[in-house]
């Protein structure tokens, strides 16, 4: 509303000194995204520690899930860039033996925030789509704002091999529909 008012005021001011005024409106077709932690700080990696149980005979306890927030600004355009999608790919490294990663996205923000989906990544499943139907929307920039992506490490004790701990590179892609 303030933006519109400023433009109108500018048009009016210019019109006093000219016979004709053309106002050309250009809106960036913005596509911006970044990963942050719960405090709103930059996030470049997530670490999960799979620790031994406290008592002999017990299975390894589950690992607490972690949330990454994807903050974004999206201004859509004409088809086919009228809807955008967020996907994830494994682009490097191997999952440790017996380990997979579940990801769940819940759309958040103001505007057309789309629909969230769940993805399970492993050595046999290397990609998936987390959010579809993002239009013109934005998430906010503060702590706790953005699309929360819940990361949960799944494993069964009998399938683990401590020698296969490792680093897996995940790449999140913002694309058109």
């Amino acid at each position: 509303m303030i933006f519109t008012g400023s433009l109108l005021a500018a048009c009016a001011a210019s019109a006093q000194n000219a016979d004709f005024v053309d106002a050309v409106f250009e809106v960036d077709e913005a596509a911006m995204i970044r990963a942050v932690n719960a405090q709103g700080g930059n996030l470049t990696n997530l670490t999960f520690q799979i620790t031994a149980p406290g008592q002999a005979g017990a299975a390894f306890p589950g690992v607490a899930s972690q949330v990454m927030y994807l903050q974004y600004t999206s201004v859509k355009s004409a088809a086919p860039d009228d809807q955008r999608a967020l996907s994830v790919d494994v682009v490097g490294g191997d999952f440790p033996a017996g380990v997979s990663l579940s990801l769940a996205a819940n759309p958040a923000g103001t505007g057309s925030t789309g629909s969230g989906h769940e993805v399970v990544l492993s050595n046999s499943q290397q990609s998936g789509v987390l959010v579809t139907g993002i239009g013109s929307a934005y998430s906010g920039t503060g702590a706790g704002q953005g699309i929360p992506i819940l990361h949960m490490v799944n494993f069964a004790t009998e399938n683990l091999d401590a020698a296969t701990a490792g680093v897996v590179s995940l790449q999140y892609t913002l694309s058109n529909y």
Partner: peptide, 17 residues
């Protein structure tokens, strides 16, 4: 790499068609 841990390195990219 640290034994007993799984680390996920996160990066972003855009797909322009």
């Amino acid at each position: 790499e640290v034994a007993g841990t799984v680390r996920f390195k996160v990066s972003m990219r855009y797909a322009v068609d």
